[in-house]
Write a protein that binds this DNA or RNA. Structure first.
Length: 352
DNA sequence: CGTGTTTGACCTGCGC
DNA sequence: GCGCAGGTCAAACACG
């Protein structure tokens, strides 16, 4: 990992309702571990020795897990390659046929997603087309009932679209409108809107691809460089500044919050994509850094003698369930030019 | 004047 | 190879 792109993250660890963010160190550090709780030198030495053994054991366990994971990955990859090569063979033998849209024709008259994504043809195409094409090929269909008098072909779905064409098709007397996402070309999503043949009051929107951004309705109206969102139950903000991307999760508000406003805001950006993206960002930033993991392991296991060490460490392996509730606060770790600080209300990582 | 829509022309893939 | 149909382009136009 490129440490220059160190991502400032703060995670809600639910159980502890503490936050995690980066700050500038105020003290110069040596390679020294300082814990908030006061221990005598003897106790500390003994604890450190035990901790060292434990970390070694955990390290071994992690190595084994990683090896197993790599093996599984390789096995899956080879299986995928097999399937893909078989599909490619199949594709080349029969004559090509034009994709029939009517094959995905079960239309709901309420606002619902029908035939959601990944038609079989897209799986076939995925063998020979790049990833962009795969994304583009993801198809979903939505039908919306409108006023009979409403002649516009507008389906309000939270995104902003630019119409780029309209065409009367053979199988339907009403014209079909073609839209591109306004964020094109960075967002490849397209949609086609046409009235249903059976019921002219129903608009059928066919989406191709997946948005790589949030709906307009969920973006901050000022379109500034920072945005406040929720991540799962966790309010968080993401911003870009000169030092790189910053994601800050306010962990002081856990999902058990009874604040109605907090509840209302929860659905905002609570999409799996966002959650996954943020967790992925944080996890990769942290876990890919050996210094961080070493420091964290030291900090965690340093307290494990008094608390439940195994449970704590195992939770760490699952980044989005990370639980630091057993940490002493404040704790500060100086290691290899970085300072990792835990406070009662927040968990802070920063490098010098 | 900038932005979005309209619409005819053009492109591309498929069936014959 | 040709014609058809769906999809896209881009100039003209409308609107705030």
């Amino acid at each position: 990992m490129d440490t220059s792109s160190w991502v400032d993250t703060s995670l809600d660890l639910n159980a502890s309702a503490r936050s995690l963010r980066l700050e500038t160190p105020k003290e110069s550090g040596s390679n020294l571990i300082v814990f908030g709780s006061k221990l005598s030198v003897k106790e500390e030495t003994g604890a450190l020795m035990e901790e060292l053994n434990r970390v070694r054991a955990e390290n071994k366990k992690l190595t084994q897990m990683l090896t197993a994971m790599c093996e599984s990955y390789n096995a899956l990859q080879s299986q995928l390659m097999d399937v893909m090569s078989k599909n490619t063979e199949k594709e080349h033998s029969p004559p090509k046929k034009r994709k029939s849209e009517s094959s995905n024709n079960n239309i709901d008259n309420n606002f619902g997603i029908i035939g959601n994504s990944e038609s079989s043809s897209t799986e076939e195409e995925s063998c020979k087309k790049p990833r962009e094409e795969m994304i583009k090929a993801k198809i979903s269909r939505v039908s919306v009932r409108t006023e009979a008098s409403d002649t516009s072909l507008v389906v309000k779905d939270g995104y902003q679209w630019r119409k780029y064409g309209q065409k009367v098709t053979r199988d339907n007397p009403s014209p079909r409108a073609y839209f591109k996402c306004s964020f094109a070309p960075s967002c490849p999503v397209k949609k086609k809107v046409q009235r249903s043949v059976d019921d002219q009051s129903v608009l059928v929107a066919t989406y191709e691809g997946e948005h790589n951004h949030l709906p307009l309705s969920q973006m901050e109206p000022t379109s500034g460089s920072s945005r406040c969102v929720t991540l799962g139950s966790v309010p968080c903000s993401a911003s870009l500044n000169s030092s790189g991307p910053t994601i800050t999760l306010d962990l002081s508000k856990s999902k058990s919050s009874t604040d109605p406003e907090a509840r209302n805001s929860k659905p905002k950006m609570d999409s799996p994509e966002v959650r996954h993206y943020l967790v992925e960002q944080m996890a990769s930033s942290l876990t890919n850094d050996p210094n961080f993991t070493a420091a964290l392991a030291a900090a965690i296991s340093g307290r494990m003698f008094q608390q439940n060490p195994i449970e704590g460490w195992m939770k760490y392996q699952n980044m989005d369930q990370l639980d630091f509730s057993f940490f002493p606060f404040p704790s500060r770790i100086y290691l290899a030019g970085r300072t990792y600080q835990l406070t009662k209300d927040s968990m802070i990582f920063y490098e010098l």
